[in-house]
C-alpha cells in the first residue's frame, strides 16, 4: 500500500491562476521520491498541501488509504506524528530563543507522545551526528550544516514514516551538502523521504524515484536511473542539460 497518494489534484490561488493541474502520484513506503521542478512549477504548493497548510481545489490526498481531512482531529494527530518536515533555510526554521532540546522536543510535546522524551531527544541527536551537549545550546552557536542537523533531529524524534524535505540541502555549501544527503540516505533505512528540490544532482543521490514537474503538471515520472539515462520529455532533457557537470 502506498504511504501517501495525491490523486488528480488541482489547485488555484485565484480563478485565473491555476497552480496545479491534475497532479497524481504516490509515495510507497521505503522508496525515496524526488519532486523536481523550478520556480513556478507548483512544487512548493504540493508541499503546502501535504503539510496541511492549504487544501486542494479538487482531487484528494490520501494517507495510508485514508482521505486527508484537516478537520478530523484523530486523523491529523496520526498524520502529524507520521509525517514530519525539514525546511530549506536552517536559519529561519529554528526558533532563535529556544534551546536545542526544546526545539527537538517540540513534536513530542505538541503531539503528547508518551515515553521518555529526554532519551528520545538524545537518540535523535545521536542519529544526526550531533554531540549530546548540544541540548543546552542555542541555534546561533551552530553552523548552517549543524543547524540543518538539528532540524532533521526534530523531524525524526517522533519516528515518523515520511519526511517531507523542502530543498533541505540547497542552502548548504557543497561539502556540507553531501554529508547531509548521506545522513538523509542513512535515515531513509527507517523512514521514507519525499524530497522537493530543483537540484537534480541531490535528487539523483538520494531518491530512487523521480517526478518532474513543469508549470503545475507532471511531465515525466519513474525510476530515477531510467529517466536520467533516457529522458523522454523535452523539459526533462533541458533540465538535465542545464545541470553544471564536472569537467571530464
Amino acid at each position: 500500500m502506498s504511504l501517501i497518494s495525491v490523486e488528480n489534484v488541482d489547485f488555484a490561488y485565484a480563478r485565473d491562476q491555476q497552480v496545479l493541474d491534475g497532479v497524481s502520484f504516490s509515495v510507497r513506503s521505503g522508496t525515496n521520491v524526488g519532486l523536481v521542478g523550478e520556480s513556478g512549477s507548483g512544487k512548493s504548493t504540493i508541499l503546502k498541501l501535504l503539510l496541511g497548510l492549504a487544501r486542494p481545489s479538487s482531487g484528494a490526498i490520501r494517507f495510508e488509504g485514508e482521505t486527508f481531512d484537516a478537520r478530523d482531529r484523530t486523523f491529523m494527530r496520526r498524520y502529524r506524528q507520521s509525517v514530519q518536515a525539514v525546511f530549506q533555510d536552517p536559519y529561519s526554521s529554528l526558533d532563535p530563543r529556544q534551546k536545542v532540546e526544546d526545539i527537538v522536543a517540540e513534536p513530542l510535546r505538541s503531539l503528547r507522545i508518551p515515553g521518555d522524551h529526554k532519551r528520545a531527544i538524545r537518540a535523535a541527536l545521536h542519529d544526526v551526528g550531533l554531540p549530546e551537549d548540544a541540548v543546552s545550546r542555542y541555534p546561533h552557536e551552530f553552523s548552517g550544516g549543524q543547524r540543518q542537523r538539528i532540524a532533521i533531529a526534530r523531524a525524526i524524534v517522533a519516528r515518523p514514516k515520511l519526511i517531507l524535505a523542502d530543498e533541505a540541502v540547497s542552502a548548504l555549501d557543497l561539502s556540507t551538502r553531501i554529508r547531509i544527503v548521506e545522513l538523509l540516505k542513512t535515515l531513509s533505512d527507517a523512514m521514507t523521504i519525499l524530497l522537493v528540490s530543483h537540484d537534480l544532482g541531490v535528487v539523483a543521490a538520494l531518491c530512487e524515484e523521480i517526478i518532474i514537474l513543469e508549470r503545475g503538471k507532471i511531465v515525466e515520472s519513474g525510476k530515477t536511473r531510467d529517466i536520467l539515462a533516457a529522458p523522454q520529455h523535452p523539459y526533462t532533457r533541458k533540465l538535465l542539460a542545464s545541470v553544471p557537470r564536472m569537467p571530464a
Binding site: 496541511g52 502529524r80 525546511f87 533555510d89 529561519s92 526558533d95 517540540e106 526534530r154
Partner: peptide, 24 residues
Amino acid sequence: MDYITAARTAGTSWAGIVFIHLLP
C-alpha cells in the same frame, strides 16, 4: 518564519505557537 511552519507541522496548537514561539 519557517519555525512557525515547522511548529504547525509538528502538531503545535495555535495557543502553543503564541506562547512558545511568538511571545518569547
